[in-house]
Nucleic acid binder design. Structure first.
Lengths: 198, 198
DNA sequence: TCCTATAATTGCACTCAGTGCAATTTAATA
DNA sequence: TATTAAATTGCACTGAGTGCAATTATAGGA
């Protein structure tokens, strides 16, 4: 009836459009205040005021203050399983994962993510929860591996998931530590090669 | 002067003895209440009352409610670096670590730790912080490895630390999942062997 | 256009974790 | 015993997060 563009789930009605807009305003307000005042020193009242909503409404969009930052995570588990789903021919698990990681890492915008990352360091709780997501990523990838290689030893697949997430993690650490002068893919390469020297 | 047995830092005065006793009472009270009422439902007032102290005093012993549980962690990083310090002859890093892990895992009391572990699952925040400690363990072990094998490629040592903590972690998961009918060392063995099949 | 079901926003009152401060008690020691 | 330092406590406060009920805005059909 009304002329809403519901085709790709993109616009879909005034209600949803407003909701997305409010969500955007909250995260924007949060990011702005976190980076100026610091994470801990920023109160929810301040965020709500900056976003033009009430304090109570904030909790209809996020379950906690932490979640503003956490919601901006890349979602390594989802990305990798997706990249893995398309192409699992006759390859071994680890090389397939390796390829998927490189695919991901190729398209990576340094600056935005780095800023978020730095903010996350300022809160113990946020940092912990961020690091805990690595373990969830592992679980997701392990499940995907089990589907693609059902006859493989589960312990092997478990280790493959562990290594792939772990290598990505330490590569990003090294990359950030060096002030990203070399591309992230180089660090990933380094660690995958170091695997042979064990 | 006074007859305090300060030799091994064991007793050392009324003050310290009382302090240790209070600490013990708090953790005991916490554990008791957590396991009956649940972690979230247990208030600090209840813990303080049960331990016979004031609410305010609690914070002279723990920085947060979480820390009661977190303080009972094994400290994989410390244990492993200690076990590693004694014996690093001409071995390669990973085999040396492997031996150290087996040494640790041999002396492991199932029941107590398992109860703590189950309690930690009931709080998102505690669980996250627990998982985050694995990364700190990695860092500790990596530092120790760098000292013992200064001429080795750091990336290799980084991966060794990652693997050793990771394998211990997934082994404990599998062990717990199976209701620990087999000894923990068996699971560690499984994963170390699966490493070859990658 | 009007009407109704449903979703979003809000205010209010509440619980609980955690902190700062200042007073008081208790142990250590000269 | 007198002095010093640590431990305990109460009080008042901030801020996160929740439950509830009232209000407002949107959706979609009559």
């Amino acid at each position: 009836m009304t002329d809403r563009k519901n085709s790709q789930g993109q616009t879909g009605g005034l209600r949803e459009r407003k909701r997305r807009e409010t969500l955007r305003r909250i995260t924007e307000a949060g990011l702005k205040l976190f980076s100026t005042k610091g994470f801990e020193a920023t109160t929810l009242d301040a965020i709500a005021a900056e976003a033009g909503i009430s304090r109570r409404t904030f909790f209809h969009y996020f379950k906690s203050k932490d979640d503003i930052l956490l919601s901006m995570q890349t979602g390594l588990g989802d990305s990798l399983t997706a990249a893995l789903a398309g192409k699992a021919p006759g390859q071994r698990p680890l090389p397939a994962l390796r390829a998927a990681v490189f695919e991901l890492v190729a398209a990576y915008a340094p600056d935005d993510l780095l800023a978020i990352d730095r903010l996350m360091l300022s809160s113990q709780a946020v940092q912990s929860r961020k690091q805990a997501t690595y373990l969830q990523d592992e679980a997701l990838i392990f499940a995907a591996l089990c589907e693609h290689w059902p006859e493989e030893n589960p312990a092997t697949l478990r280790l493959a998931a562990l290594l792939c997430v772990g290598i990505t993690r330490v590569a990003m650490e090294a990359w950030r530590r060096d002030g990203n002068r070399r591309p992230l893919a180089d660090y990933v390469q380094d660690y995958f090669e170091a695997l042979a020297g064990l």
